[in-house]
Amino acid sequence: MSETPFIKMNGLANDFAVVDARRGGVRPRSEIIRALADRARGIGFDQFITLEPSRIGADIFMRIDNADGGEVAACGNATRCVAALLMAENGTASASIETRAGLLLARNDADGSISVDMGVPRFDWEDIPLAEEFRDTRAIELQIGPVDAPVLHSPSVVNVGNPHAIFWVEDVSGHAIERFGPLLESHPIFPERANITVAEVTASDAVTIRTYERGVGLTQACGTAACATLVCAARTGRTGREATITMPGGDLFIRWDEHDHIWMTGPVESEFTGFFDTETGAWRRQEAAAE
């Protein structure tokens, strides 16, 4: 048996198994990740996070695999969790994290929340990417349901490290995103698939959302979806450049600053530690994680 230690963490119930590959931990094969992600028989998580040495001088390189075993470039809530680990390890109030989406900077706020600079959003159709040209990505031609009475239509689209489509609705609870999410996630317009969100603007500084995350499914929270929602809401005049984004798992505060960088702020939690077998996917819980 080849056991690898992990720590289970979450940001607003968006949860992760984190392995430190700098200290002998191993990133498992995709089929083992899928087994470990299973909430009935495995550890149960949305993403598997592997910490590796940075190639550009950051504190860490963060590799992200979704529950389906596919690698992705960005995960906002995981970034906050990893930042909290690094700051505790180094005794610092800030951390730098290399990802496939770029270099992300994080800080520990006075109230114990973790803030991350998620970088600059990309709105051009080629950068999202889309399969065909749309000059205005504030609302693209995409709908689901009858042509004359679509259930959802005209989403705003953006890349915030991964592709997102935001559908504006009057009541997020009135849409079965768990049913239509898989259809939209894999729609031909999204060659790399996309995260699908329904968003209800409740005030000029507040939005409620639900997200179907590519490679994961319906999530309690999605940090990049919160970021995508805020910049698209501001870009379409629905909100200002900062707002509280409410998800089933809780709230994130998102600010799109004067330099066009997106700042995401919210809590993190360490749940427990354990070990898993890299060959079989068998795992065992060790203890509650230290706060």
Rank of each mutant, 00 (worst) to 15 (best):
F134T: 01
G161Q: 06
A37P: 08
I49N: 13
S96C: 05
L184T: 09
V172C: 08
F276E: 09
R41N: 14
R107M: 05
I49Q: 08
R55S: 15
V147K: 15
A101R: 06
D46Q: 10
E3K: 13
I166E: 03
E126L: 04
L104A: 04
G174Q: 07
S154K: 12
G237W: 03
M118S: 05
A73Q: 14
F6P: 10
R210V: 10
E141Y: 04
S94R: 14
I262A: 02
G145H: 06
T239S: 11
L103C: 08
G24I: 10
S270H: 12
D46L: 04
R179C: 09
D251I: 03
A199Q: 05
V207W: 03
T239G: 09
A40E: 11
A83E: 10
S54H: 06
R235N: 09
A37V: 13
I7N: 01
A88C: 01
R100S: 08
G145D: 06
T211K: 06
R255F: 01
G223I: 08
Q143P: 00
C75D: 12
P191K: 11
T4C: 15
G112D: 03
F123H: 14
R41Q: 13
D38C: 14
R238W: 05
A95F: 10
G250Y: 04
V19K: 11
R138C: 04
D136N: 15
E200Y: 01
G161P: 03
D111Y: 03
T197K: 01
I128M: 03
G181S: 09
V231D: 06
I43L: 08
V172K: 02
